[in-house]
Amino acid sequence: MAEYLIFFNQQWVGDHDEAWYQGRVEPSTAVVREMQEQGVLVYAGGLVEELEEAASADATSGTTLVTDGPFAETKEWLGGLTIVDVPDDETARYWAGRVAEGCGWPQEVRRFKSGSLREAARG
């Protein structure tokens, strides 16, 4: 099994009224329930949209600098993510499609590299 990240950038959501968003609650939670039932869900969640609540950490200068707000050069920012543990790319793409259907906006799916920090922590 391999872990895959399914995610969207907030800018991909588009402009919709509150009723549209409320209409996405049941379809998107149904997909999460389905992933739980299938035993593939590791984590799913959306992020706070208020950028003033974000912080950035940068240690590239040799000194760690933590600042308020997103990284200054960022034009897009992460809106939410799902992590699934599935046997192959085809299955990961299936779930990415299901998440896209449930949410109503595009998703990207990428496999985590082998030898991830999580694997190392598990020993």
Rank of each mutant, 00 (worst) to 15 (best):
M1A: 13
M1H: 13
A2M: 05
E3T: 14
Y4E: 04
Y4Q: 00
L5G: 00
I6N: 05
I6V: 15
F8C: 09
N9I: 01
Q10P: 00
Q11F: 01
W12D: 15
V13F: 02
V13N: 06
H16Q: 13
H16V: 11
D17Y: 10
E18V: 15
E18T: 14
A19P: 04
W20I: 11
Y21N: 03
Q22G: 12
R24E: 02
P27Y: 09
A30K: 13
A30Q: 10
V31G: 06
V32S: 08
V32L: 08
R33E: 12
Q38G: 01
V42K: 08
V42I: 15
G45T: 07
G46M: 04
E49M: 11
E49F: 05
E49S: 14
L51M: 05
L51Q: 11
E52L: 02
E52N: 12
E53T: 15
E53P: 00
A54G: 01
S56T: 15
A57K: 04
D58K: 09
D58A: 06
D58R: 12
S61L: 07
T64D: 00
L65A: 14
L65K: 15
L65W: 03
V66T: 14
G69C: 04
G69W: 05
F71G: 01
F71K: 06
A72H: 03
E73S: 10
T74W: 00
K75A: 07
E76W: 14
W77Q: 05
W77E: 04
G79I: 03
G80S: 01
G80V: 04
L81H: 02
V84G: 01
D85A: 13
D85M: 06
P87C: 03
P87S: 09
E90Y: 03
T91K: 07
T91N: 00
A92H: 03
A92W: 02
Y94K: 08
Y94P: 00
W95T: 10
W95E: 06
A96D: 03
R98M: 09
V99F: 12
C103M: 14
G104R: 11
G104V: 10
G104C: 13
P106L: 11
Q107K: 14
Q107L: 08
Q107D: 02
V109W: 01
R110Y: 04
R110M: 07
F112A: 05
K113W: 13
S114M: 02
R118K: 08
E119H: 09
A121I: 14
G123E: 11
G123L: 05
